[in-house]
């Protein structure tokens, strides 16, 4: 039995301990904002926050997160999350939208750690998140906008 918090609520899982966190969130908790894209931590569509840090949930066995705090796109809050989501809608960043939960989770984590990131810091934090629609140009601009909106 693994216990953890998911978006602030106590949860437990007693299925196959190898089950990746991604499939626990999607299949058992029915939170579908976190996406499957590759299963091998190459695309970032499954990014969640695990104890405050971005984590690829597709390669994170549920057995390894006992006692941890998990936050998904459905549960993010705070000024960074608000700034990022506002910037995202302001620039109409999403196209197909499938990767965007993961993009936003990575961007929020970046701003929590680096409030005013440079282009290189954005590259460093976001390189693991693929977007086949290639919305990168707007992702970069939205992160800068979000950072600017949090100032003062």
């Amino acid at each position: 039995m693994v216990t953890f918090t998911l978006n602030g609520k106590e949860r437990s899982f007693d299925g196959d301990p190898d089950t990746p966190l991604l499939w626990v969130i999607r299949d058992f908790e029915k939170l579908t904002g976190t996406k499957y894209g590759c299963g091998v931590a190459q695309c970032g569509a499954c990014t969640v926050h695990l104890d405050g840090m971005p984590r690829r949930s597709c390669i994170t066995p549920i057995a390894t997160i006992d006692g941890s705090d998990v936050v998904t796109i459905e549960g993010i809050s705070g000024k960074e999350a608000q700034a990022v989501q506002t910037a995202w809608t302001g620039l109409d960043v999403p196209q197909c939208g499938y990767c965007q939960s993961g993009q936003i989770m990575s961007a929020v984590a970046l701003l929590q750690m680096v409030p005013k990131p440079t282009d290189d810091e954005i590259d460093g934090a976001m390189t693991g998140n693929l977007c086949r629609c290639a919305t990168y140009h707007r992702i970069r601009a939205a992160i800068h906008n979000a950072a600017n909106s949090m100032e003062g």
Partner: peptide
């Protein structure tokens, strides 16, 4: 379709 694709509520087939 932007808002639903920014807060995780947009539903795709897999969802």
């Amino acid at each position: 379709d932007t808002v639903g694709k920014t807060n995780g509520t947009a539903i795709f087939t897999l969802d």
